[in-house]
Simulated scan of single mutants.
Amino acid sequence: MTVLDAYCNIGGAGMGFWLAGFGVVGVDILDQPRYPFPFLQGDAVGAIAAHGRRFDLISAGPPCQFDCTLTAGTNSARRDRYADLLEPTREALESTSRPYIIEQPPGRASRRMRVDLTLCGEMFGLRVIRHRNFEAGGGLLLDQPPHVPHRGRVAGYRHGQRYDGHYFQVYGSGGGKGSVPEWQQAMGIHWTDVRREIAEAIPPAYAELIGRQAAAQLGGAPASRAA
């Protein structure tokens, strides 16, 4: 089985699909020298439309800056710098007639997609909360696991006061958000030590869960692999 990992960034999703038994090819507009699988640099929407039919599954996490809560609120004056990629991505995915996944963080973009699955780091014993929503298409069905209650606070500063907590804030660089090794451990990402790359990824455990559900529906046998 094969998956096209569109908007692949450093490969958080790609690693999860690989752990679930898929051969992975990534595509991103920016060069990703630490991406751990075969990689094509180019426009993700164009790559999906041109090559998506060759894959058993397509995963796409378009950048969310156009619709994210921060851009729409605090940084709203900068919103016109970002392209709205959600609808063009969905159109390209639907044109392939292949099973697909769209991933987005909670917020404005998620209100423009059908949320078939919501995942949280605590479901996998990770030290991030990092809710992410997923829309499934092309006949793919996803089962929603129970949402596990969170264990206390996220560590860091709030209004000048430092709080300890079980979870790390994996974004930005200030506010007591944790060290690179702590981020790597919290996310399950160990093949890069670049903060920005870790911050823009999803935990591989999310895509592994989706990949195993997809593999069962596609008739593939999940592999046993160690990250």
Rank of each mutant, 00 (worst) to 15 (best):
H166P: 00
D193S: 11
I202F: 07
E200H: 14
I202L: 13
P181Q: 10
H166C: 09
E200K: 13
G175R: 12
S173H: 14
W183S: 03
R195G: 02
Q161W: 15
F168W: 13
A201K: 03
A199M: 05
A199K: 06
G172V: 04
P203E: 01
Y167F: 08
W191F: 14
E182A: 15
G156M: 02
E197W: 13
R151H: 14
H190W: 15
E182T: 02
P181N: 11
E200N: 13
R162H: 12
E197Q: 15
A201T: 00
T192D: 03
I189S: 01
Y167P: 00
G172E: 07
D164M: 06
G176K: 07
D193W: 12
H150W: 13
Q161P: 02
I198F: 03
G174F: 08
I189L: 04
G174V: 08
V170T: 00
R162M: 12
G172S: 09
R158H: 13
H166L: 07
R196E: 09
Y167S: 04
R151L: 12
Q185S: 10
G165M: 07
V170Y: 00
R196D: 08
A201M: 05
A201F: 00
G160Q: 11
A186T: 06
Y171C: 05
I198R: 00
E200V: 09
D193F: 08
W183P: 01
V148W: 06
H166G: 01
A155W: 00
Y163E: 09
D164C: 01
Y171W: 15
W191E: 06
Q184G: 02
R196M: 06
H190A: 07
G174P: 06
Q185M: 12
M187P: 04
M187L: 13
V148H: 05
S179T: 14
I198E: 02
Q169N: 14
G152S: 06
P204C: 09
K177S: 11
V180F: 12
F168P: 00
Y171G: 06
H147K: 12
R158L: 07
S179C: 06
S179I: 05
Y171K: 07
S173F: 09
E197M: 04
Y163S: 09
Y163F: 12
P146L: 09
D164A: 07
I198A: 03
I202N: 00
H190G: 04
H159S: 12
Q185G: 06
S173N: 14
P146R: 13
P204R: 03
D164H: 10
Y171V: 02
P149A: 10
V154S: 06
A155F: 02
A199I: 05
A201I: 01
V194S: 08
G172T: 03
W183A: 03
R162D: 04
R162N: 08
H166V: 11
G188A: 01
Q184H: 07
H159C: 05
V148C: 06
P146C: 05
W191G: 08
P204A: 01
Y157V: 09
W183V: 02
G178P: 01
V154K: 03
P203S: 10
Q185P: 08
P204I: 01
S179R: 08
V170F: 00
G175L: 03
Q185E: 15
Y163T: 08
D164L: 11
R153K: 14
R158N: 09
V194I: 12
G156L: 05
G176Y: 08
Y171H: 12
Y163W: 15
G174H: 12
H159A: 15
H166A: 15
M187W: 03
D193Y: 11
R195E: 07
P181T: 10
Q184I: 04
V180S: 03
G174E: 09
